[in-house]
């Protein structure tokens, strides 16, 4: 196995993403982490984290994630509306001599509290979810969980990323949320390399093109894993070939892989054939990362 370490101060971070759910992000990221010698698996799909169902981590520690929300004392507020005019997200309204705060619109910038000349606004913690950390074999499993009904999982992802700063030698595999919105941008922000997972359908091409645009916008090196491959045409493969996009692997649409996955097993840990397949994908990805590191040094 090539030397993955010694590539700098921080760990190597591989983000796995796709334009929609169900393409195989968790399959790829969990199996890559399981194939690596010392890995951190980071489940950033905070609205529906499922990696922990496969890893079944032990010695789980849990921490709440809070955000700051302004709270008004309407007996002090003089209705100057500086806060209302300032808030870019319109989380505040002044109606009938009362200031109203819309918690779920607030982005916790704290600007209204700083601006208030009457000091009528204070900040209060609001719990929006939690992060868990546990051990599964050689893999440290970090899971972000956003409470139902909360608008943004970004603070949970920030907390997850903060939580891996003290383990610089491990390779990090980020299981991203589906799509290409803010929450995905946050997940890939510090990534050294992005793995895009795609399905072999026209719909799959549409979803692939969304994340393709995103990683290009962020100037991230990337490659594609074609999942659920069958005999015959593969529009996602054609998309890659036409654009000269690196295809890292083609995962066959096999009954045994589906069965392992539906039984919440990690294929790499159960079947030598898949251990070989994901180890070779891991080598390829790490080779790409090193190649990028060299060409940019």
């Amino acid at each position: 196995m090539p030397d993955f370490m010694g590539m700098g101060e921080s760990n190597v971070r591989i983000a796995v993403l796709s334009g929609k759910g169900g393409t195989g992000k968790t399959l790829v990221s969990a199996n890559l982490a399981a194939a690596a010698p010392d890995a951190i698996y980071l489940d950033c799909d905070v609205e529906e984290p499922n990696g922990h169902l496969f890893f079944k981590p032990e010695h789980v520690q849990e921490e709440e994630v809070t955000i700051k929300i302004p709270v008004v004392d309407n007996t002090v507020c003089n209705g100057c509306r500086k806060c209302v005019d300032f808030c870019r997200f319109n989380a505040l309204a002044y109606i009938k001599d009362r200031l109203i705060v819309f918690d779920e619109i607030c982005h916790s910038c704290g600007g209204c509290v700083m601006l208030c000349p009457e000091k009528a606004l204070t900040e209060q913690d609001k719990v929006i979810g939690k992060v868990q950390k546990g051990i599964s074999g050689d893999v440290t499993v970090h899971t972000g969980m956003l409470n139902t009904g909360e608008a943004s999982g970004v603070p949970i992802i920030k907390s997850l990323l903060d939580g891996i700063k003290d383990s610089p030698d491990s390779t990090v595999f980020v299981d991203c949320p589906p799509g290409s919105a803010c929450i995905v941008m946050e997940s890939i922000r510090d990534a050294d390399y992005c793995v895009l997972v795609a399905e072999p359908t026209l719909f799959g091409v549409h979803n692939l093109s969304m994340v393709y645009d995103l990683v290009k916008l962020f100037n991230k090196p990337f490659g594609v894993v074609l999942n659920k491959c069958l005999e015959g045409e593969n529009p996602a493969e054609e998309f890659c070939v036409e654009r000269g996009i690196k295809i890292l692997a083609k995962i066959p649409f096999h009954h045994d892989l589906g069965l392992l996955t539906s039984n919440a097993e990690i294929a790499v840990r159960k079947d030598e054939k898949y251990k070989e397949m994901f180890s070779s994908l891991l080598n390829m990805v790490m080779g790409e990362v090193q190649c990028e590191a060299t060409s940019h040094s």
Partner: peptide
């Protein structure tokens, strides 16, 4: 003035109506 707001346009527009 809420027309181009990045978010919370309804709240701001409602404030205008109020």
């Amino acid at each position: 003035s809420a027309l181009a707001s990045p978010g919370g346009a309804g709240i701001k527009a409602a404030q205008l109506i109020v």
